[in-house]
Write a protein that binds this DNA or RNA. Structure first.
Lengths: 180, 180
DNA sequence: ATCCAATATATCAGTCTGATATATTGTACA
DNA sequence: TGTACAATATATCAGACTGATATATTGGAT
């Protein structure tokens, strides 16, 4: 089996729910998938053209709007490709935190600088957590109507739990740094 | 200020503690930094040559061993470069979990397949957690002798806390999937 | 002796990011 | 009514990095 390109799989996954433009795909990623996956336009647009060439998606111009919109939809072959990928074992789960990297080498600059990075991290997490909690409320309400929400909720719960743990770690990290 | 390449910074960070070969640098990454950063030989070896050309590191052949060893050391310029990077604000903290991606699109294949991915994730975390707990013990003992261990311990505590949270999430995720 | 795992360096096709370019549409507000 | 600005929309490219592959040596087990 050919090595599945991640960007192809995410796009097909999103298209399996609804028809989308490249711009809308990017927006979905930046909101719904933000906490565990990302992608740039530089990979999305070439991938879309490639998916069409391989018969996994279709492209059509939007005749309703005056905008230069290109709407993509998944094909049956695309759905098969997605299902196959979903059933393959996970290749890689990766955490890549520059904050921890700078902390690891922190002795070179000292405690004051390390504290700055921890507090910036804490601030960012505190700002993002409310969006996850809001999503949790919405999804719990909509759970009865649409069972696909259950899978989305699973990832939101992951985000909430880890973010809350991050905040606990920040507290302890500051204590440890101060010499406690 | 020129955009600091991450691979340059990690290598200089490791060289700031001790002289190392490219192979040893990779080993440090795969053990100590594993939980928050990774790098491949394909980036390490070219970066090492580049660092030497820019005067941030020096290269010398190991005359003691019969092996074709090339030992790298950080220069004063290299240390300045590292210190500057450490004081810059964090650009990106990124989590990229294929497990969550496949879960998000899980409705396409159903609960049984989702459960398989969650249990594989749970197994992997349970296997890795003991190494972090072991590192915690060692570092706590050595904390008095060497204060640089404090920074290493900070990242280990992050790993332990998040991994324990992952395991809690797995339990709840399985309940949620089963329809609870 | 022989085999295998670990040590050690290096390169390359292909993936993906981040920056940049370009143009249009909707909205606020003066 | 004009006009500025944010949002919508597509596209490309240099450069970073991965994963695979190649090559060769050394130490230890049997």
């Amino acid at each position: 089996m050919a090595n599945e390109k991640k960007i192809d799989c995410v796009i097909l996954g999103l298209l399996s729910h609804e028809e989308l433009t490249g711009y809308e795909i990017k927006k979905r990623m930046d909101t719904n998938l933000k906490y565990f996956w990302g992608a740039s336009y530089g990979s999305i647009y070439p991938a879309l053209n490639d998916l069409v060439n391989r018969g996994l998606a279709t492209k059509r111009e939007d005749t309703n709007s005056k905008r230069n919109k290109l709407i993509y939809a998944i094909t049956e072959n695309g759905r098969d490709y997605l299902k196959n990928w979903l059933s393959l074992p996970i290749e890689k789960d990766e955490l890549r935190y520059e904050t921890l990297l700078k902390l690891f080498f922190g002795s070179e600059k000292g405690e004051e600088q390390a504290l700055i990075h921890i507090e910036a991290f804490e601030k960012k997490i505190k700002e993002e957590l409310p969006y996850l909690l809001y999503a949790e409320t919405i999804l719990n309400k909509a759970l009865n109507e649409d069972t696909t929400h259950k899978y989305y909720l699973l990832t939101v719960e992951f985000g909430i739990k880890t973010y809350q743990t991050y905040l606990e770690w920040c507290k302890e990290a500051k204590k440890l740094l101060a010499g406690g």
